[in-house]
Amino acid sequence: MNWDDARVFLAVQRERTLRKAAKVVGLDQATVGRRIAALEHALNATLFFRASDGYALTPAGESVLKAAEKMEQSAHELARQAQGVDNRLAGEVRVTTTDSLALAFVIPAIASLHAEHPDVRVQLSTSTQMLSLARRESDIAIRTQKPESPDLVARRLARWRVGLYATEHYLRRHGEPERGTGLSGHDLVLYQPFLSGNSRPTLVGEPIHAGRIVASVHSSLMLRAMIRADIGIGEVPVHMGERDGLVRIWPELSRGSAYEVWLVTHQDLRHTARVRAMIDAIVARFETED
């Protein structure tokens, strides 16, 4: 098996359909199917079950998976090390972050970078899904959690308290909630992952059992938009609530855990000129907001 075969094999294993795998590796669907068939013929083994819900590995495929992942790791390490000594302020930098942080910080940082280094091209991905720096899906990640991998270099950009917010218009209509009532009589908008946890959800420590959950979202940007639209009250990082002109309810109370923002890159890439320039622009943008 060569690296090209391993790359196609891994794409099918991860995406589970030929169509999605083809998009990942930049080939057409028919070519991916032929490559998998040729690989199975060369190895004299069936690597995938073809099921109605997609492709799944056979026992033979499971054994091939470990070897393919080792090849991928070596290929990415080679590319990172080569890129790490690249002193050109030109070429592509891939950045991944959330939509909220992209609008407030990363896009202005890209504008600053472009003004100074117009030959650097940025590929920006905004999603709650964490792309892999080790697999070179991204060069820089702006995340709300610190990674544990020793191969990654992390720098904390911000640490904000999280408060409870509403609009002035909402509070005129509904009044300010009373502490100890479980937010009785109030409409709530929540971050969906908090509802999916094992513990009972609260807002800045206040139980919400008596409130009415109007909507839940997977994006902090959408959560803030719903609060601004008078749909309900919700938790927002204090820095962002102030930017949005929202009214903080119970200013003395905050969520138990702060909202942290981390800049993460692979240690092999942090000295690449274009990656370093993008990092510096992002850091400068956050520093202007302190």
Score class of each variant (00 low, 15 high):
P201S: 01
Q145E: 14
I249N: 09
L164C: 13
G205Y: 01
D280R: 05
S112D: 15
R14T: 02
D244W: 00
L103H: 15
A79P: 03
E287V: 12
V25E: 00
R224D: 01
S184F: 11
A258M: 00
D268L: 02
S63N: 05
E242P: 06
H169V: 05
G232H: 09
R243I: 07
R172W: 09
Q123Y: 09
D53N: 10
W250K: 08
L43Y: 04
T31I: 00
T58R: 15
A21V: 04
L18S: 04
V12D: 03
T97A: 04
V120L: 14
I249F: 11
S63F: 06
A104M: 12
E242T: 11
D139S: 09
A6K: 07
R161N: 15
A102V: 07
D119N: 11
L253M: 09
V122S: 11
R212I: 01
R212S: 03
I213H: 03
R14D: 03
E116I: 11
R173I: 02
A277W: 12
W3R: 07
V106P: 13
A215I: 00
S132F: 15
E289T: 04
A60S: 13
E77K: 08
V32K: 03
T144W: 02
G241C: 03
V106L: 13
Q267L: 03
I233H: 10
P150H: 08
G185Q: 13
I282A: 05
R143N: 12
A60E: 10
E252V: 06
V264I: 10
R16S: 12
S219C: 02
A229K: 07
E116Q: 15
A277V: 05
D99M: 03
H266C: 02
